[in-house]
């Protein structure tokens, strides 16, 4: 019961944060909304049996990405604090799109029958060790490629942001 309540709390965090991020006209609130939402997600990940991913979510996403966005915002703050004019037409269009999309996807999800497994896999399979092993054997190419992407991103970011 408590567990359920926790889960629903996380769900609520996800959705409220998402709503804040989506609808807020103030960038800062949006970032906060993003953070909240990500936090909720981390909770859900935890609940889904993966503490490691949840941790990474918190560390990298909230700790890294969100903070980077905040920095970026502050660097360009001179303009961004001025609240942009609300554009009802645009918002309406966006909401319409989202609603249609959500309706369609929800309909499909409700209609789908996934072949669910009877019980979750063993603890061992969920362990960080198993993850690391897979990452270095099974998915070694992916891992290497990811590191390359990060390297490039760093070079690129430096180059782009460098003053002329």
């Amino acid at each position: 019961m408590l567990e359920q309540a926790v889960i629903y709390t996380f769900v609520a965090l996800v959705l409220i944060g998402g709503g804040l991020a989506a609808f807020s006209r103030q960038i800062l609130y949006a970032i906060i909304g993003l953070g909240i939402s990500l936090l909720g997600l981390a909770g859900l990940f935890l609940n889904l049996g993966s503490p490691f991913v949840a941790a990474m979510q918190v560390l990298i996403y909230i700790g890294g990405i969100t903070v980077a966005i905040v920095f970026a915002m502050m660097l360009s703050i001179a303009m961004s604090i001025r609240p942009p004019n609300p554009d009802a037409r645009k918002l309406g269009f966006a909401i319409a799109c989202a609603v249609i999309f959500f309706g369609a996807v929800a309909h499909l999800i409700r209609g789908a029958q996934f072949q669910q497994i009877a019980s979750p896999a063993s603890e061992k399979a969920w362990s960080v060790g198993a993850l690391g092993h897979a990452l270095l054997t099974h998915y070694n190419v992916v891992f290497e490629a990811l590191s390359l992407v990060l390297l490039l991103a760093i070079i690129g970011a430096i180059l782009i942001a460098r003053k002329a």
Binding site: V142, A145, L146, V149, L152, A153, I155, G156, L159
Partner: peptide
């Protein structure tokens, strides 16, 4: 991942 590896340098 390969797709993103191909795309990011071009963005840059």
């Amino acid at each position: 991942v390969a797709m993103e590896l191909a795309a990011y340098p071009v963005y840059i």
